[in-house]
Amino acid sequence: MTASYVLLGLLARGPRHGYELKHAYDQRLPRAKPLAFGQVYSTLGRLERDGLVTQAGQDQAGGPERTAFAITDDGRAALETWLGEIEAPAPYVSATLLSKVVVALLVADPARATAYLSAQQQAHTSRMRELTRLKSEQDLTVGDLIAVDYALTHLDADLRWLQTALHRVADLHREVQS
């Protein structure tokens, strides 16, 4: 979903081939899961069907990877709308971390939940260290840096929650079991 708007955003700067889009996507969002070529073409196909992009020429070699795409006026309008929309601030709380604690208490006991929380805490901590090392030892691009910042801030938030959850495990167990 978001990927299609990123592609529209890239096309807003001029027509591009599918393979160029994939590389531009990975370059601009360096810490995102890389976009698969297949996903680029299926997304472009959908955007074309909805009239948000249009084909803009083809190299002699042909094939989808040699087809250039351009954003349409509708595409620009859709992009503008998306940029102006505020994302609902966490309307639902659904996180695997949270679900695991609840399920651990349903099927096992506080010790199980605690074991999970502490293992998760260690995994988060070592990931934070890894990202922090990257940040302090290498000259990252600004694009990379703000992506790393994003990851670190969210890991930090998770860690705070994990810590608080550890304090509440016994109480939660009583509630879940009652």
Binding site: P110, S118, Q121, Q163, L166, H167, A170, H173
Partner: peptide, 12 residues
């Protein structure tokens, strides 16, 4: 030694 900083696994 657990690195957690809290008393754990002891239902209050």
């Amino acid at each position: 030694p657990t690195g957690l900083g809290v008393a754990i696994g002891v239902p209050a």
